[in-house]
Nucleic acid binder design. Sequence first.
DNA 1: AATGAATGAGTCTTCATTCAT
DNA 2: AATGAATGAAGACTCATTCAT
Lengths: 193, 193, 193, 193
Amino acid sequence: MPKVGMKPIRKQQLIEATLASIDEFGLYHTTITTISKKAGLSSGIINHYFGGKQQLIEATVRHLLDKLNHVLVEKTAGQTLSPVERLNLIVESNFSVFQRSEPATKAWLSFWEQSLHVPELARLQHINNQRLLSNLRFSFRQLMPKDQAIEAAQATAAMIDGFWLRSALSQESNPDFVASERLCKQFIAKLIS
Amino acid sequence: MPKVGMKPIRKQQLIEATLASIDEFGLYHTTITTISKKAGLSSGIINHYFGGKQQLIEATVRHLLDKLNHVLVEKTAGQTLSPVERLNLIVESNFSVFQRSEPATKAWLSFWEQSLHVPELARLQHINNQRLLSNLRFSFRQLMPKDQAIEAAQATAAMIDGFWLRSALSQESNPDFVASERLCKQFIAKLIS
Amino acid sequence: MPKVGMKPIRKQQLIEATLASIDEFGLYHTTITTISKKAGLSSGIINHYFGGKQQLIEATVRHLLDKLNHVLVEKTAGQTLSPVERLNLIVESNFSVFQRSEPATKAWLSFWEQSLHVPELARLQHINNQRLLSNLRFSFRQLMPKDQAIEAAQATAAMIDGFWLRSALSQESNPDFVASERLCKQFIAKLIS
Amino acid sequence: MPKVGMKPIRKQQLIEATLASIDEFGLYHTTITTISKKAGLSSGIINHYFGGKQQLIEATVRHLLDKLNHVLVEKTAGQTLSPVERLNLIVESNFSVFQRSEPATKAWLSFWEQSLHVPELARLQHINNQRLLSNLRFSFRQLMPKDQAIEAAQATAAMIDGFWLRSALSQESNPDFVASERLCKQFIAKLIS
DNA sequence: AATGAATGAGTCTTCATTCAT
DNA sequence: AATGAATGAAGACTCATTCAT
């Protein structure tokens, strides 16, 4: 088995197992054992590749953040966009990720909860938050005075997060991301009218 | 000499100790011991009065829900209110509670995270959510057609929850509840204009 | 079972179980489990009373030091002694402790080895060492010039420790403490003649 | 292209890495990993060349014993020595080795501690001990009756070991080997006067 | 009414060993 | 000849729960 260069493969495998475990058991009941079983590997492997459970958790958060970022970058790359188009793409990217991977919804909520008491997670959460605000502010700024743009960004971010939170907490197997996305876009449209 | 009626006193004491412990250590690191120490009581007392840790947690959630409810009821009691006035009071009640007890902000987030995997907490979360939606819908319905009212309620709830979430996650010691409240009210004003 | 005031009883019980375990398995293979089994208690009890394995180890060292001290104090208490008599009692106290409890011999060696890398044990070892040197120096000083007394104390301490070490390492079930004691006293006699 | 004769080179490399690791981390915290890292080799190499960690430890002890022996043999080779000269050389050889390699001091103590519970190490310790006693006895025998010679050997061995032990435990970076050596020689001089 | 002594299952982590390459 | 991927048993520690008093 021991081929060289397993590191990136195993790391990916374990991050996905972590998301699967959080989806099934919750972060609180996700243990070294539940993760390694989902990955089909031994428990020792986590320390081998990540140095500990907490580092694996953090790597998983970074993985989600990277994916979220990636979506927006892809959507906007190489295009000339009007401010409104850009704002809409920001909304879309925030919902598309969740549409695609349902387990991630729960994971985000768990991670943000943990960030209340784990500095590294707080740092990541803060970066993510600032990025969203900054993206929104930039586009709103092209359509309105600075003070208004700041508040518009805050309100839009709140609405996005609010819909996301409600989706995560929703018991329904298929929360209505489509409607959420539409309502966010409507809100933006109203803000700039 | 057994004192009569210690039960409600002790229960209240333990619920407050639970909130204090979650504020300091986080739900994850809140144990029977951290709670009972904060209450100045022995560890056995929790099983004695609540039958277990989980039941104490649930009682604490119910306590927070009751308080939230209480605020709205108080604000609206015995008054004749226009739909807009009522909507504004709903917003106010949602923010006033958090303004008053900062520890509660963290506790809510922890509890909702737990509700993903604890049926009883999910039930309580669902009730709370439905109540907010229903209150909002009721007032909006008096100002617009049903379909629009439903969506207005959803959007407003999302914005309230979004601001609340951002406050909880905010590292700042004094998150801007005042601005949040104002922006929510502005949003409502726009919706009904 | 839970009576009040079990603390000192349990602590003593666990310290003795620790010595028994080190005697049988060695410090390296002494675990929470071997100790608690020897004490007839559960494994959790060690954390309950000592806060951790390492603290129990340190408490055990302190226990041995206390006993060693106690012997000398008892032997010399309330008597008017000549310097030579006092020196001989120092020798006797160092051997009597080991004569009495054979397991302790192994424990001392294990502890000093650990002291190479555990600061708290190093501290205790240093105190013990200084006390022996100081006691010897004090008595020698009454019989010879300062410089000579210092060296006499060092040489005597070395001989005591040397015999003690050889006894610990000796495979024989009954190492010759009597001869060791006699040779140490002879050495002292020669030093002051 | 398999290099011929890597075996002795690698073995030597690993033995030295073992001593370095014990010096830095202590025997207890010396692992396959710490050793192989210090050697700049992979962790698998130890099993490859020694068959296991324990065998490497034992090889390291044998290496130290060999060096100790070698020193005395070199010092005494091809000379006609008086008994006193020979005794002094025995003392010198016991201190010279430690003077030269400070890490070894800690290693010896760790190894003797282990010998309490590892038969092979006990065997090696016993051989070493007997050799020292026998060497001393042989020279003393030429200067005094048998009974006295036996005790003189024992006392001298104890003093040498005692000074060695005190040096190992001494926190000072540069324990006073010179003084120790001088005091041992003085002791011998007194014994034969 | 309240305590705190005691338990032991569950968790994370360490690490010697194995083995395909 | 040498690597390093992978394992899993064993360790220390945590903590909700039980229960005699």
